[in-house]
Structure formats: C-alpha cells, structure tokens
Amino acid sequence: MVYKKRLDGRNNNQLREMEAKVGVITNADGSASFKIGKTWAIAAVYGPRELFPKFLQDPKKGVLRCYYNMMPFSGSGERIRPGGNRRAQEIAMVMSQALQPVVDLSAFPNAVVDVFIELPQTDAGTRCAGISAASMALADAGIPMKDMISSVAVGKVDDKIVADLDYREEHIEEFNPESAHASVSDIPVAMINNTKEITLLQMDGEISQKDLIAALELAKEATSQIYEVQKKALKERFAKE
C-alpha cells in the first residue's frame, strides 16, 4: 500500500500539538479554549438558568443544550455565511448527547445549561475539539459531572489506522497523488475517561469490522492523551485562585 508516511510526519497514534486553557471568557459561568493543530474551539457555559420557552422545561432535571458555530472566516475556502446550517444543527445535537452521560442536572429542574462552541479556525476534527473544550468549560462552571469527556477522531487512511486526522488526510486523494484511489474513513469518537465507554460515534468512509475495532482501541489511547491536557488546564485554572 502507498500511504507510507503521514503527510505531516506524525506517527500513526500521534496527535497534533495541543493547547488548552480554562477560564477565557469572564462573562461566562465556565469557559475553555482547546487547540489541536490548526483546529481551535472555544466553549462557554451559561447556566443553570431558567429555560424559555417554558414548554421545553423538564420538571425532573435541567436540560443540557449545545450550540456549534464555525466563524465566517474559519473555513479553509470561501467565507462561510453566518446563520447556521443543517451540518451545524446535527453536530450540536450529537455534542449534547456526547456530554450528557457525565453531566448530572438532577439538582436543576426546569433549568437549562447552555454550551456555546465557536471555531475561529479549523483543520478537521472540529466537533471533537468542541467536545473536549465543552467538557472543560462545564467543569469550570461547576456543573456536577461524574467524569470528563475527551474526544478525537480516529480512522483509516489507505492501509493505516491513525489518530487525529487533519484536513489533508481526510482528503488524501487530493494531497497525496500516490494515494489517488485510497479510501479514507473518518471516525469522530468521544469517550468517558475512566470507563472508556463511547458517547460519540460517527463515521464516514469505508472500513472493515476488524479495522473499526482496531481504530476504537486506538481511540482509547488517544482520548487519554487529551484527558491529560484537559486535566492540566483545569488544574492551572484553579491553582490561580
């Protein structure tokens, strides 16, 4: 097979360089910034606060609501017209579901916890970076959580199982002429850190069952690396106070 070396020279299990910071937006109840390579997500948490319209309220527990937005200048091509689209709606939904299993809102009936995720620049893996940022922001806001969620994409590029695909790897046929007919599968995964249970799983491309399981095993190791970065950023935040 022809994809001998990753385009940016990383090892197959190597993530791009990461940078995390907690407490970046003073207006918010909790906030965080997470960079992985040239993908950058900023998350802000507001709440628990009263949920309107009232019919959306749950008298038993609070509601977790996510919003995902790419800034107009954050795409690698033309300007993105602001105002949301179907892709952003779907990503926001799967993000909420990825975070929900560790968030306990039973103490906040009829309330909402809003998580706003914004991307100033992107290079693939935006929903995963957004979830990793959001998990830190929720912790920063003091929302009761059982664990942290860490998220990264894994996948198969040609014959290699790799972690944290960037844009060029997702479009390998365009950037690596030798891989003109290579198949790529992109699998965004989010995991509960301690149990390694999966809370986000999507995939596009083609992959065999055996390779998929191998990729998910790789995701365990990869999300642990992200968790270490999240933990360090949270510690730095609270060491200051």
Partner: peptide, 11 residues
Amino acid sequence: VNAELLPLSNP
C-alpha cells in the same frame, strides 16, 4: 462589514 454578537460572549 458584518458583526456577530455571540451568545458565547454575553448572557
């Protein structure tokens, strides 16, 4: 020129 007052930036 376009401006977005993000809900991320103010409650």
